[in-house]
């Protein structure tokens, strides 16, 4: 499963990126506008929701629980400095997807107990998209975390994130992760739509 995390670049706006990801076949989009206000995010989110609806894709908005509820987006992704998952669940109920960022097994356990629906886990390697970063996990990190999840009978999908490019995907999928989140790999590609197609194909070839 591929999750595309929107980002703007010199070439593309947030919506350009989302449009290209959808066109390439991605059906799971995260709108992430870290330093914007809710009022700046709202119109972009509404357009993103329309696009996603047209493609039958899910739209998750980073960090903004109240906005997700207000707009009726599919869900929210919560980073380590955002609202705790348990609090978001109380506000949103069960009819929204809630994802939480984890760097360690303790984070995963906490998200699990807080009834998160998926875990965004990383960073796989050093990335330039994020400003603050925990130590990189590498393949071994994912293997170990997934093993600990199995032992603890935590059956949540884990999405690998952080500086992942096409050539990393086969080995990463073999560790047992459920999905891959990408941003830069798509937006920096010469042909982002073709890149999304290739990334999806790679996540399915295991």
């Amino acid at each position: 499963m591929l999750q595309f995390i929107s980002h703007y670049t010199d070439r593309y706006t947030y919506l350009d990126g989302i449009r290209m990801a959808l066109e390439g076949g991605c059906r799971w989009i995260q709108l992430r506008m870290k330093h914007a206000t809710d009022d700046e995010v709202r119109p972009v989110a509404l357009q993103a929701m329309q696009l996603c609806k047209a493609y039958g894709a899910k739209l998750i908005i980073d960090d903004r629980v109240a906005l997700v509820k207000e707009l009726g987006a599919d869900g929210v992704h919560l980073g380590k400095n955002d609202m705790p998952v348990a609090e978001a669940r109380k506000l949103l109920g069960s009819q929204f997807i809630i994802g939480g960022t984890a760097n360690t097994f303790e984070d995963i356990l906490l998200h699990y107990k807080s009834s998160a629906d998926y875990i965004g886990c990383g960073p796989f390697r050093f990335t330039t998209t994020k400003e603050k970063l925990a130590p990189v996990l590498g393949l071994e990190g994912y293997r170990s975390l997934l093993e600990q999840m199995r032992e603890a009978k935590i059956q949540l999908p884990l999405v690998a994130i952080g500086g992942i490019s096409a050539e990393d995907i086969p080995a990463l999928m073999r560790t047992g992760v459920s999905g891959i989140a990408v941003s830069g790999a798509v937006l920096r590609a010469q042909d982002p739509v073709a890149e999304v197609k290739q990334l999806i194909k790679l996540t399915q070839e295991i």
Binding site: M1, R27, W28, S94, F96, I97, Q204, I206
Partner: peptide, 18 residues
């Protein structure tokens, strides 16, 4: 599973509820 707020994938490809 609830009516909303769920995503399901088969063989790593998301399948819309429809």
């Amino acid at each position: 599973l609830p009516d909303k707020g769920v995503a399901v994938a088969v063989n790593n490809q998301m399948v819309p509820r429809s």
